[in-house]
Amino acid sequence: MKPSHLPPRAGVGFKPEHFSEIDAARQPVGFFEVHAENYMGAGGPPHTRLARLREDYALSIHGVGLSIGSMQPLDRDHLARLKVLCERYQPESFSEHLAWSSHDTVFLNDLLPLPYTQDTLSRVVEHVDQVQEALGRQMLLENPATYLLFAESTLEETAFLAEVSRRTGCGLLLDVNNVFVAATNHHLDPYDYLARFPLDQVREIHLSGHSEATDDHSAPLLIDSHDTPVKDPVWALYAHVLERTGPVASLIEWDNDVPAWPVLKAEAEAANTLLAKARQRSAA
């Protein structure tokens, strides 16, 4: 099984509108990440651009539609499409979410939460095994941003992820913004969450912005909106993670109200500064 091996540098979620600027000069970016499903057409400009990017940069393919957290069987057609995509571009990493997004034959187009029980654990383990076997590579599983909890849950999310990783050999994608969002939404201490997180299995980190709302009782409810710069408390959490993990490939995700390329590049440079410090620490 081919391990996930992104370079331990800052990466950026690729948006087609930035292509010309990215292509005009070498960018201070260690890798680009794309959403798998947007490259499942037969041809056309999306593939032209991705093939061009691939010549110069490491690549992470990030699925948003496999529905690994479904209680129903995985969509074999979709798995086959992912296999074709991974064979075509040979990405350094493939990742997906601890979430579900399809039911029956309907695609719900959101990363939906699941209860954490022995039942759901075995189902997720089964699905991750299937994915890794089909793709012939290690996959990374991402912690979700969640807005509510299930009364039936018996496992903590961190324990659930640790166990999936232990049983399947999958790596973990630690979304630090999701940690902050979910911890706030569930009235937990994000540092406490990280203390329980199996950081030794983290192969990639996600960083992004969120927005603020309130819940039924006027308590803060953060939304994983990917439409702003990374916020200060998330940068602080990230620095805290790097102190424990050492340098890890770190992605800036910005999917809504996408800014001009220099803004994204500056975010990546901010991450690179923290990664450089982590490298110095590891060298010392």
Partner: peptide, 9 residues
Amino acid sequence: PPRSPVLLA
């Protein structure tokens, strides 16, 4: 509703 996760279709 969509019947596939590939929304470009």
